[in-house]
Design a binder for these strands. Structure first.
Lengths: 128, 128
DNA sequence: TGCGTATATTCAAATATATGCATATACTAA
DNA sequence: TTAGTATATGCATATATTTGAATATACGCA
């Protein structure tokens, strides 16, 4: 049952926190790692779980892997996505994570990873 | 995290099947048992899990316990409830269960339990 | 090629969850 | 009071899930 699989994948606080972040824009594993304060191995596994459930998709850029919401998931589960978005706004942990994401983006301290273009242009403070 | 608790409780196919039935109207444990073909002990435990998560509430009538959707749950999670309702319509197992529920109601073969009023009035084929 | 970094995966252990069997508790009728 | 029925719960077990440590794989640079 797909519904069971989806809900089971979402039934974990860390995965919900990840989803909250990724719903605000594509992120690299290392970025999620830093914001949530989870181990790399754990983040990787949670991301995989969400991907297998169809919620996320990834692309690779050199050794960096970026994850973002799967458009199919959005179009197949609009009500669920909306429900989650509204729920995240009410959850302290998610709000703190979101604040942290915004602060790091604003201060440019979130850049372990960067695009080839940026690096070639010597723009070390930006990311693709 | 409440969201995690809710989604985790829903992340089980049997519990989803139960929710599908109960969303169509109040049911007694023995009725759910019969329609789903699960053991009494198992049904009881699933019902408890859903109740603890806030989705269901129960009332007792003699030795019979009737479960129905918790109104608070409906009003606190309208989008989720709608999402689930739409999802159940697309799931074969849930549709079969629903058919079974309707057939049994129509044929009056679903009546292990009945209200005191009905029994006193000798209306053995009806339930409150 | 060797080294450093990022990420996925393996292995092992701990924890959570689901279920069957047996039983306790609640209720009703004779 | 006894017997029958409905339901919840205890106990034990099997299975699923989660996580840390270690490691394999991919990539870039000197």
């Amino acid at each position: 049952m797909e519904l069971e699989k989806t809900l089971k994948a979402l039934g974990d606080s860390n995965r919900l926190r990840i989803l909250n972040l990724v719903m605000q824009g594509e992120l690299c594993v290392c970025e999620i790692e830093e914001i949530l304060g989870l181990s790399q191995t754990n983040v990787s596994r949670h991301l995989n779980r969400l991907s297998v459930a169809g919620a996320l998709k990834s692309r690779k850029n050199a050794q960096w892997v970026f994850y973002r919401i799967n458009d199919d998931f959005m179009s197949e589960h609009p009500l669920l996505v909306e429900y989650l978005a509204l729920s995240f706004e009410k959850i302290d942990a998610c709000r703190l994570d979101t604040d942290k994401l915004k602060n790091k983006k604003a201060s440019g301290t979130l850049m372990q990873c960067w695009s080839d273009t940026d690096r070639k242009n010597g723009k070390q403070k930006e990311r693709c």
